[in-house]
C-alpha cells in the first residue's frame, strides 16, 4: 500500500517537472527540470525492482544528457541579446 502511494507521488512529480521543462522560458532552468524528470524516472525504475535500468537512466539521462545540453547552451547566445 505504502509502495503504491510512493509510486503515485513520484509519477505526479514526474509529470509536473516535465510540464515545467516545456514551459520554462529560461533554457538552463528547463534543462535542470528535465534532469529532475530523469532522476525521478530512475527512482521509479528502482521502485519497480529494475536497478540495472535505474543505474543506466541515472547515468545517461540525468548526467550525460544534462552535460550535453549545458555545453550546447554555453555555445549559443539568447535570441534577445543579438
Amino acid at each position: 500500500m505504502i509502495e503504491e502511494i510512493i509510486q503515485i507521488v513520484v509519477l505526479l512529480i514526474i509529470i509536473v517537472t516535465a510540464i515545467m521543462a516545456v514551459s520554462f522560458k529560461d533554457l538552463l532552468a528547463a534543462v535542470i527540470s528535465l534532469a529532475a524528470t530523469s532522476l525521478l524516472l530512475s527512482l521509479e525504475f528502482y521502485i519497480l525492482q529494475a536497478p540495472d535500468v535505474a543505474i543506466a537512466e541515472a547515468g545517461i539521462g540525468a548526467a550525460l544528457t544534462t552535460a550535453i545540453f549545458i555545453l550546447a547552451i554555453k555555445g549559443t547566445v539568447r535570441e534577445e541579446e543579438i
Binding site: 540495472d52 543505474i55 547515468g59 548526467a63 550525460l64
Partner: peptide
C-alpha cells in the same frame, strides 16, 4: 550486484 559494463561505463563518463 546490479549493473554491468554499460551502466558502470556511463557512470565513469558522467
Amino acid at each position: 550486484t546490479p549493473g554491468g559494463g554499460f551502466q558502470g561505463g556511463a557512470v565513469v563518463a558522467s
